[in-house]
Amino acid sequence: MTRSDLPARDRTLPDELPDPGHIKLSDLSDALTLGWRDFRRAPVFGLAFSAFYVLGGWALASVAFASGQDWWLIPFILGFPLIAPFAAVGLYEVSRRIESGEPLDTSRILRVVFEQRQRQIPSMAMVILLLFMFWVFVAHTVFALFMGVSALTHITTSAEVLLQGRGLVMLVLGTMIGAGFAAVLFSFTVVGLPLLLDREVDFITAIITSCQAVAENLGVMAVWAALIAIWLFVAIVPGFLGLLVVLPVLGHASWHIYRRVMAG
């Protein structure tokens, strides 16, 4: 039984954590295989959790296109890896139950997810949202520096504007900055989020442990981060519909990577 299943009176003391271990590139392949297995085993949960992001993407796209400011989708798409990890919280619980042989009871899974509001995950969510909002602010600033302040309210997106001259330089620089934000938040959450669900620790300890895990496995984690970014981008291209499959598989796989890193 995970600490998230215990009553509050039994979760008063923090857990002792092992030092993060080493993983290999083959562990990524294994984790993805297990992630696909978990998604096929419980597709309803994956589709339900990822549907919120698909609907959110549609809503943002509708607002952007209706206002004639569809270029605003660019910082959202570049910044999506910042907020995607939070979608996986419910998927971690599904994978944990499959791993331990516990029943996939919908009410219990939803209860575990809902009870996280009394633990440390809301604090981690605030860190994620603040970084995402800061990224959006930086994206606005970069756009204004290259295209002019007036362009923020008058420009309409076209290939002629964004794919030549200053527009192209702006896209390259913005992508690099967005990648930096994503790398920081990846380091915070790749182990930190599943750790908060699985163990009784504060979110600062979870962030530190996650950063240590990334530092111990820098090459492998860099490959994993690149795979996540590429697959999320590909999933967004077909009207966000690819997220219905990509998000659940990556979420489940992230749980198995966490388990291997914190196997001690």
Results as ranks from 00 to 15, higher is better:
222 A>D: 06
52 F>S: 14
168 L>N: 03
157 T>N: 08
123 S>M: 12
251 G>P: 02
194 P>D: 08
130 L>E: 07
41 R>M: 11
248 P>R: 06
46 G>K: 05
111 R>P: 00
195 L>V: 04
47 L>I: 15
82 L>A: 03
253 A>E: 06
119 R>P: 00
65 F>E: 13
218 L>N: 03
215 A>H: 09
53 Y>M: 09
191 V>T: 11
249 V>G: 02
152 L>I: 09
46 G>L: 08
127 V>Q: 07
25 L>R: 05
130 L>F: 11
67 S>V: 01
25 L>I: 11
262 M>L: 12
197 L>V: 15
18 P>W: 07
108 R>Y: 02
15 D>N: 10
257 I>M: 09
50 S>T: 04
126 M>L: 15
137 F>I: 14
42 A>N: 12
192 G>R: 04
176 M>Y: 06
193 L>M: 14
140 H>I: 09
253 A>T: 04
164 Q>E: 13
190 V>H: 10
91 L>N: 01
141 T>Q: 12
190 V>E: 11
108 R>P: 00
133 M>Y: 06
66 A>V: 01
98 I>Q: 15
251 G>N: 05
220 V>S: 03
44 V>E: 13
263 A>V: 08
115 E>D: 13
31 A>R: 01
244 L>V: 03
168 L>K: 07
106 T>R: 12
124 M>Q: 11
204 I>Q: 10
216 E>M: 09
182 A>V: 14
7 P>R: 10
205 T>E: 14
35 G>K: 06
82 L>R: 01
59 A>P: 00
222 A>F: 13
50 S>L: 07
189 T>I: 06
204 I>L: 15
160 E>C: 00
198 D>A: 13
231 W>Q: 13
91 L>R: 00
113 V>N: 00
109 I>A: 04
22 H>L: 11
208 I>P: 00
43 P>N: 09
85 P>H: 05
166 R>Y: 07
186 F>S: 04
143 F>P: 00
140 H>T: 10
127 V>F: 07
161 V>C: 03
35 G>Y: 08
72 W>H: 03
260 R>S: 09
61 A>N: 04
46 G>E: 09
112 V>M: 12
215 A>W: 10
247 L>E: 03
160 E>Q: 14
43 P>D: 10
215 A>F: 09
8 A>S: 10
228 I>G: 06
157 T>F: 14
19 D>H: 06
257 I>W: 01
156 T>G: 04
84 A>R: 02
109 I>V: 14
139 A>L: 04
139 A>S: 14
124 M>C: 01
185 L>W: 02
237 V>I: 15
210 S>I: 06
107 S>V: 12
148 G>V: 06
6 L>E: 11
